[in-house]
């Protein structure tokens, strides 16, 4: 935990902005640079900054490990599940054309869901790895 008041105040101001920017990168990835990978890392870095300044116990209070551990698998299952939905509609695995009447709309839905799955898994894995390392110190 860091006692420096400047760092504490500034990080408190910045963390919401980091999380918001991560969500922007996640959902705006279709139009600008970015996507699930970057958004997941950014989202995790918000929590990692919080843990570095206020201690891991503070993070455990906000978002305990039992939230993150299932999320590690949830994102990957979402990705795999989208592929199986295409199979159910008689299309090849991960062919997003099957997800809607219009192929283009289907592609949009598919890319959105897949990127969401990537973001969830990447963020959860980064936070879990960080907390596992930080937990060894105490």
């Amino acid at each position: 935990m860091i006692q420096n008041p400047v760092l504490r105040v500034v990080s408190k101001l910045i963390i919401p902005l980091i999380l918001l920017f991560a969500l922007y990168v996640q959902f705006h990835g279709d139009y600008g640079p970015g996507g699930g990978f970057q958004a997941g890392v950014l989202f995790a870095s918000g929590f990692i900054l919080y843990a570095m300044v206020f201690g891991t116990r503070a993070v455990h209070k906000v978002a305990p490990l039992w939230i993150w551990r299932p999320l590690v698998a949830t994102g990957l299952f979402l990705f795999i599940g989208v592929g199986f939905v295409s199979l159910l509609f008689g299309k090849p695995y991960l062919d997003y054309d099957a997800l809607a009447q219009e192929p283009l709309v289907g592609q949009h839905i598919g890319v959105f869901l897949v990127e969401l799955g990537i973001g969830i898994t990447v963020a959860a894995v980064m936070i879990v790895i960080f907390l596992a390392f930080a937990g060894r110190n105490q």
């Binding site: 490990l65 990957l76 959860a124 937990g135 105490q138």
Partner: peptide, 20 residues
């Protein structure tokens, strides 16, 4: 790639354990 990241996370959890 996502499966690789998932595996990395699971590997760290299995090796280092978690605090709770």
């Amino acid at each position: 790639e996502l499966a690789v990241i998932f595996t990395a996370g699971v590997g760290v959890m299995a090796l280092l354990g978690t605090r709770s």
